[in-house]
């Protein structure tokens, strides 16, 4: 009996999902993707192509999270071969600023935000008193307030180039 070769449906890989998620940007900082921001904590792809994505919030009260959940689901739903898409939020393995990729740090800088220092412990918030100015690079700066236009930013002043700037707050 002849068996016709069945053309296997190409399996969607996790990498492909990550790739398209690079197109989904943080609505509050449109230069950085959700992947580089480090909020995608898990991706599961079933053999049938059903995708389950887990996001973890930067801040508990981040108003952009629900929007990003929708944007992520919408983008992945349009990938060929993807079945159902489920996006959920979790606090397992919570976000911290070290989860931002190298690419992400550059993207923040491009947006005019001083990137958070690596491995900074927020128990030593004095790091905020010498954030590197995103304009001139000087650390001759001072923090004006630990709160800014979004929950994840603080406001600073550079005594070298005499410019105000914002920083992405270090969070451990």
């Amino acid at each position: 009996m002849d068996v016709k070769p069945v053309k296997a449906k190409p399996m969607i890989s996790k990498e492909e999902i990550i790739e398209v998620l690079h197109e989904v940007k943080d609505p509050e900082i449109p230069t950085i993707s959700v992947v580089d921001l480090g909020i995608v904590s898990n991706i599961e792809v079933s053999p049938a192509g059903d995708v389950k994505i887990t996001l973890t919030p930067t801040f508990a009260g981040c108003p952009a999270l629900k929007l990003m959940e929708k944007m992520v689901a919408e983008r992945v739903r349009h990938v060929e071969g993807v079945g159902t898409v489920e996006v959920e939020t979790t606090f397992d393995n919570p976000w911290n600023t070290d989860k931002i990729s190298e690419q992400g740090l550059l993207a923040l800088k491009k947006h005019g935000l001083a990137p958070p220092p690596r491995h900074s412990s927020t128990s030593q918030l004095d790091v905020l008193e010498r954030m590197a100015c995103p304009w001139c690079g000087s650390t001759n700066t001072s923090m004006k307030t630990p709160f800014g236009p979004t929950l994840c930013r603080s406001m600073h002043y550079c005594d070298n180039c005499l410019q105000a700037f914002e920083s992405f707050k270090p969070v451990e």
Partner: peptide, 10 residues
């Protein structure tokens, strides 16, 4: 609350 600890420090 581990998440909240980082926030309340500010």
């Amino acid at each position: 609350v581990k998440k909240y600890r980082g926030e309340v420090k500010y």
